[in-house]
């Protein structure tokens, strides 16, 4: 797949898109783990929601 004289522009564009999308995915996944861990900590310290549901109910 020859990309011609402007290959660096094409490769940089695709690399950047993949990098930013991966950063978004990792950021959202890490945030999810962090929030679930905080919920578990709070529940372990005896604070519970009015509904009585726990973080374990959230998949």
């Amino acid at each position: 797949m020859p990309l011609g004289p402007y290959a660096s522009f094409i490769v940089t564009s695709y690399t950047l898109v993949v990098a930013v999308v991966l950063i978004l995915i990792v950021w959202i996944a890490v945030d999810y783990r962090r929030q679930k861990a905080r919920l578990r900590e709070l529940e372990a310290s005896g604070v519970v929601r009015r509904s009585g549901r726990s973080a374990a109910d959230i998949r």
């Binding site: 999308v21 978004l24 995915i25 959202i28 996944a29 945030d31 999810y32 929030q35 679930k36 905080r38 919920l39 709070l42 529940e43 310290s45 604070v47 519970v48 929601r49 959230i58």
Partner: peptide, 27 residues
């Protein structure tokens, strides 16, 4: 589809963040 997927996942995180906040306030 990528946007819809990421958006739903980020909304789930935000709901959890608000639950954490309300539990912290209760505590």
């Amino acid at each position: 589809l990528l946007f819809i997927t990421l958006h739903l996942a980020a909304m789930r995180n935000e709901i959890l963040r608000r639950r954490v906040r309300s539990l912290q306030m209760m505590q």
